[in-house]
C-alpha cells in the first residue's frame, strides 16, 4: 500500500516530459529557429539572392535614425492602446450579456460571431469597397462623420480610424467568446447570495462578475495586445500604409522593407524589434496583473 500510493499519484499527476516533445519540436523548428535566423540576418545586408553580407550594426544605426521607423513604432503603440480601449469594454459587455441562456441572446450572439468566420483578407476587401469615396457607403455617410467627399482613407486620422474600426469589428467576436466562457464559469451561488443581500444587476456586475473575470481579462488583453502589435492584413489591403506613411505600423514596415524592397537585412532588424517588444509587453502584462501567481478568483469560497 505504502508504495502503491506514490505510483498511483504519479500516474494521475502531470504527464511526462515526452508528451510535450512534439509541441516543443514544432515550436523549435518553426518559431525558435527562424527567430534566431532573423536576429542573425538583422546584422547583414541581404537582397534575397546571393549570400548575406555581414554589416555589423549598420542596419541598427539606420533603424535608429529612420523617421519611418519612429513613426511606425509610435503608430503601433497607439494602435495597440486604442485597440485595447475600444475592444475590451465592448467585448466584456457583450460577452457577459451573451452568457445568459435566453434564446434571443443565443441567436444574436451567433450572429455577432459571424465576422470571426471570414478571412481577414476577404473582410478587408469588403471594407475597402465600402470605403470607396465615390461608390462605397462612405460616399453617403462620410459627410456626417466629418469626411467631406468620402475622403476617409485619404486623411491620416480617417485611415487610422478605419484600421482600428475594421480590426475591432473583426476581433470583438473572438473576445466576446472568451468573456462569454469566463462569465458562464462564475458560480451561480454568488449571484444568489448577492440577490439575497439586495444587490441589483449593476452592483452584481461590478462586485461579482468583474472581479471573477480577472483572469479572463488578462488572457483576452494579452491576445489583443500581441494581435495589435503584429497586425498586418487589414493595413495591406485597406490603406497600404498610406496616406503617405501614416498607417505604416511595424509589421507593414517590415513587409515593405522585406518583400517590396527586398532589403531583407533591414526588414529582419525591424522584425527583431517587433519580437522583443511583443514579448516584453505580454510578459509585463502577465507579471503586473499577477496572472502568473495563479491566485484563485474563488478565494474565501
Amino acid at each position: 500500500m505504502a508504495d502503491a500510493v506514490p505510483r498511483h499519484s504519479k500516474s494521475v499527476g502531470r504527464p511526462s516530459v515526452a508528451w510535450a516533445l512534439p509541441g516543443a519540436l514544432f515550436f523549435v523548428f518553426f518559431a525558435v529557429a527562424p527567430m534566431i535566423l532573423v536576429v542573425a540576418l538583422a546584422f547583414t545586408d541581404w537582397d534575397g539572392i546571393g549570400t548575406p553580407q555581414w554589416t555589423g550594426l549598420s542596419n541598427w544605426t539606420r533603424l535608429w535614425d529612420d523617421p519611418d521607423t519612429h513613426q511606425a513604432i509610435r503608430l503601433s503603440l497607439v494602435l495597440t492602446v486604442l485597440t485595447w480601449l475600444v475592444q475590451t469594454p465592448l467585448a466584456l459587455l457583450l460577452g457577459v450579456w451573451a452568457a445568459g441562456h435566453q434564446r434571443n441572446r443565443a441567436v444574436l450572439s451567433a450572429i455577432f460571431f459571424l465576422p470571426l468566420l471570414g478571412s481577414s483578407v476577404a473582410l478587408a476587401l469588403v471594407w475597402k469597397s465600402l470605403l470607396d469615396p465615390n461608390f462605397g457607403l462612405i460616399a453617403d455617410i462620410g459627410p456626417a462623420l466629418g469626411f467631406e467627399d468620402g475622403d476617409l482613407l485619404g486623411s491620416s486620422t480617417g485611415a487610422f480610424g478605419a484600421v482600428l474600426f475594421v480590426t475591432a469589428w473583426q476581433f470583438i467576436p473572438l473576445h466576446t467568446l472568451i468573456y462569454q466562457g469566463g462569465a458562464r464559469a462564475v458560480p451561480r451561488s454568488l449571484y444568489d447570495a448577492a440577490a439575497i443581500d439586495g444587490a441589483g444587476t449593476v452592483r452584481q456586475f461590478f462586485s461579482i462578475t468583474l472581479p471573477q473575470l480577472r483572469n479572463t481579462i488578462v488572457t483576452s488583453s494579452v491576445i489583443m495586445v500581441v494581435g495589435a502589435l503584429t497586425f498586418f492584413d487589414t493595413v495591406l489591403i485597406l490603406t497600404k500604409g498610406g496616406p503617405g506613411t501614416d498607417t505604416t505600423i511595424m509589421p507593414y514596415l517590415m513587409y515593405k522593407n522585406g518583400f517590396q524592397a527586398f532589403d531583407l537585412g533591414y526588414a529582419s532588424a525591424v522584425a527583431t524589434i517587433l519580437v522583443v517588444v511583443a514579448t516584453t509587453v505580454s510578459l509585463l502584462l502577465v507579471r503586473l496583473t499577477g496572472f502568473t501567481a495563479m491566485r484563485s478568483t474563488r478565494e474565501g469560497m
Binding site: L125, K128, L131, D132, F135, D149, D151, L153, G154
Partner: peptide, 18 residues
C-alpha cells in the same frame, strides 16, 4: 484631380468605373 482622389483606388476598379 477632384477632392477625394486620395481615397480612390485603381486595383478595385474605383478609378476606371468613375
Amino acid at each position: 484631380f477632384g477632392k477625394n482622389y486620395k481615397s480612390v483606388n485603381y486595383t478595385a476598379d474605383g478609378a476606371s468605373t468613375y
